[in-house]
Design a protein around this nucleic acid. Structure first.
Length: 714
RNA sequence: GGCGUGGUAGCUCAGCUGGUUAGAGCGCAGCAUUCAUAAUGCUGAGGUCGAAAGUUCAAGUCUUUCUCACGCUACCA
């Protein structure tokens, strides 16, 4: 008995602090769903796992903001996300969650195993911010302060959400604890670091040559360029040990005495969530989870967005390898990580903070009564525009166009034509026909028979399948529509509505061929637009598509056999898709615009300041005398300014907004008593005051032309 | 600034290891047709393949420089 290949398909765990938008769906979920559905259609042994990612400081922050517990937050979004997936027909075998005890156990066991191994972790002690009132260390997200980049007052310790800059807490100006509001103190703390540097060599070999533990496990040419590219770019630099614990009270406790009060870093526990989910699924279904992770014929595929490449291609593989080094059987590594890029919406980046997004759950509500077969329409449009190789574009106008031309005009229309004629001529019963009947083929003058035509379709169906195997979902969908076009051409070239009056025997063969195609559609639409498949099966009076049906279909097509027997009774046809009302499109566009306006994110007012606070600032009028770009930086200009009583050097991060030439001679305001600081080797004494307009555009705050230098501002 | 990926018809994208007049769909124009949800079919117009230089008998396809977009990363007072 040969072991059957075990496929383990994962989709990136969605973070349970917000709903899903079309970018998520197109990026990591619909692609995986099509792939998993297709594998099942081929009768393969598949586990398609996912779950919500429920730890991390962003969750606790959000909880605090909404006045709820972290548990409330993750419950809320876990269920919302799961519901969205269910409705959209994403067929996870399990949608687990990282707050589940099983996951806690799994992640802790994983951590302990690597810790015991001895050479995978190091412990390092350094200074971190600590809130004395709450007696706890502050995670990056628990510290707020002024962003050194854009002066945004509400920047977090790890990132400024306004300008997107990645930060470390120590960089924040005037840091404040979000717990007490106090200024935190620096205190020593110990953390565990995963020694990625140790794994550099074999990772490089694995990425470049597909070799792992001395064996070729995948063909690197099958991986997407941008995936391999980014990995090698990381591996060419030096890998550094990475902190995998945090001082936080929400998450998976570090399972060691010395780790009290600390939790595993969310990025360490999240990928282990794939394993926990598999375990939970296996337990509930009488399977052995290890077959899918450690079996010789286990095949692991991670579907993710491009922001996750490093974690799935470097860090998690290193974790799996390290674990496998000291346990049998060993984990396999992914055979592919077909990361997608990003989806833009109406020519702008999707932004959750600006609410520039199409949310899955909102679409399902909005479109429910307005768009026929609305789930399949969205699935179709997102798969058709999947950002497989580069960022792609979603526009509502394109959504309407794809629905109207591809789904209504080609696909639904073709099937409707065939069915209406069959009902008209034969009362919906498949006629008996002469297999030798000659019909017009696709190109002019070409003759074909039912069998030849069936075999030709078989080749197209095979091509569609191969495209899915290569993760080329857009091409697969193109093949699908191409088959519909073929059907329309076939009808047009054979004109059964004319021949019925002259040679009705021929028409029987023509319509049988048409129905053959419709039956093909009822199977091959299933991975992409499952509701359409289900409706077609009903119309064809056939049972729903089941696992393995693709293989049967392909065999029959190759043999040139009829899929439906003569005498088979069909149901009445109905419109599978209808044209989309312009009103719906307009409604969606208005909704976006509205969001855009109401959230013209003006920074909220800062805390009250006293007059004394203000009087501490010494702001002076000044003139820029010289300017030059600081070498090897993008943002920095080195300025010489006249402050009246002296000339001094100031470094300013404005080079992306102004050239050196155009700022010379500018009248400016200078915060003159700011502590001097060395930036890129240049001592900067003071700060030029700028106003930040929409989209981060900077302008000078200037006294009028001709105003003197060195005057105070109050 | 460093690294990575991409820049092909109005729009969305194909073009494998370099090889005859660069492809598809949509949109547009004309024609045909009525079985079908004014759906479909046929024909056509449209590109100096981001820019420049180079290698080669031959480059969209290789090299170098530049430029734009996106991602990672450094810098940001």
């Amino acid at each position: 008995m040969t072991n059957k290949k075990k496929y383990l398909i994962t989709s990136a765990l969605p973070y349970a602090n917000g709903p899903l938008h079309i970018g998520h769906l197109a990026g990591a979920y619909l692609s995986a769903d099509v792939y998993a559905r297709f594998l099942r259609l081929k009768g393969e042994d598949v586990a398609f796992v996912c779950g919500s990612d429920e730890h991390g400081a962003a969750i606790t922050i959000r909880a605090k903001k909404e006045g709820l517990s972290p548990k409330d937050i993750v419950d809320k979004y876990h269920h919302l996300i799961k519901d969205t997936f269910d409705k959209l027909g994403v067929t996870f075998d399990i949608f687990h969650r990282t707050s589940d005890p099983l996951h806690h156990e799994t992640a802790q066991e994983f951590f302990k195993k690597l810790d015991e191994k001895g050479d995978e972790f190091i412990r390092e002690t350094n200074e971190q911010y600590y809130d004395e009132e709450y007696n706890q260390f502050l995670a990056d997200r628990y510290i707020k302060g002024t962003c050194p980049n854009c002066d945004h007052e509400e920047a977090y310790g790890d990132q400024c959400e306004k300008c997107g800059t990645a930060l470390s807490p120590l960089e924040l100006i005037d840091p404040k604890s979000t717990l007490s509001g106090n200024t935190p103190i620096l205190k020593e703390t110990t953390h565990w670091y995963f020694r990625l540097d140790k794994h550099e060599a074999w990772l490089k070999e694995w990425i470049q040559e597909g070799k792992f533990r001395g064996e070729v496990t995948h063909n690197p040419n099958d991986w997407k360029n941008h995936v391999t590219g980014q990995c090698l770019s990381w591996l060419d630099g030096e890998l550094k040990p990475r902190a995998i614990t945090r001082d936080l009270d929400w998450g998976i406790p570090v399972p060691l005495k010395e780790g009290e009060g600390k939790v595993l870093y969310v990025w360490f526990d999240a990928p282990i969530g794939y394993i926990s989910a598999t375990k939970a699924w296996a337990k509930a279904n009488g399977k052995n989870w290890e077959d899918y992770w450690k079996g010789e014929d286990a095949e692991l595929v991670h579907f993710i967005g491009k922001d996750n490449i490093v974690f799935h291609c470097i860090i998690f593989p290193a974790m799996l390898k390290a674990y496998g080094d000291v346990s049998e059987p060993k984990y396999v590594l992914p055979i592919n990580v077909p990361a997608n890029q990003f989806v833009n919406l109406e020519n702008q980046k999707i932004s959750t903070s600006r609410n520039w997004a199409v949310w899955g759950h909102e679409y399902l509500e909005d479109a429910k009564d307005k768009v026929t077969n609305h789930i399949d329409v969205l699935r179709y449009v997102l798969i058709k525009n999947m950002p497989e190789q580069k960022d792609s574009e979603f526009t509502w106008e394109n959504y309407r166009e794809l629905n109207d031309t591809d789904l209504v005009g080609k696909l639904a229309n073709f099937m409707n034509r065939v069915l209406v004629l069959t009902h008209k001529y034969y009362n919906g019963v498949l006629p008996t026909f002469d297999p030798a009947t000659s019909m017009n083929g696709r190109s002019e003058g070409e003759q074909t028979t039912f069998k030849v035509l069936t075999q030709a379709i078989g080749e197209k169906v095979a091509a569609l399948g191969q495209a899915i195997d290569r993760y080329e979902f857009r091409i697969a969908l193109k093949e699908l529509i191409d088959i519909a076009s073929f059907g329309n051409e076939f009808l047009q070239h054979n004109e059964p509505w004319k021949k019925q009056k002259t040679t009705p025997e021929e028409v029987k063969a023509i319509l049988s061929a048409g129905l053959q195609l419709v039956t093909v559609f009822s199977v091959i639409t299933q991975p992409f637009i499952p509701n359409t498949s289900a409706k077609l099966r009903t119309i064809l009076n056939l049972p729903a598509v089941k696992d393995g049906d693709y293989n049967i279909l392909l065999e029959n097509l190759k043999a040139g056999e009829a899929l439906l027997p003569a005498g088979h009774q069909l149901e009445k046809a109905s419109h599978l898709f209808t044209k989309i009302d312009q009103e719906f499109i307009q409604f969606q566009m208005d909704k976006l615009e509205e969001n855009n306006e109401t959230l013209s994110d003006l920074t909220p007012l800062k805390e009250e300041a006293t007059f004394d606070d203000f009087m501490k600032m010494d702001i002076r009028t000044a003139t820029i005398l010289e300017a030059e770009k600081v070498e090897k930086t993008d943002k920095l200009l080195k300025l010489k300014v006249d402050v009246g009583f002296e000339e001094r050097t100031v470094v300013s991060g404005i080079a992306q907004h102004f050239s050196a030439e155009e700022v010379i001679g500018k009248k400016v305001l200078l915060l003159a008593n700011l502590a001097p600081r060395k930036i890129r080797g240049v001592l900067s004494k003071g700060m030029i005051l700028m106003a930040e307009g929409e989209e981060g555009k900077l302008v000078f705050v200037s006294p009028p032309e001709g105003f003197g230098n060195g005057h105070t501002v109050s």
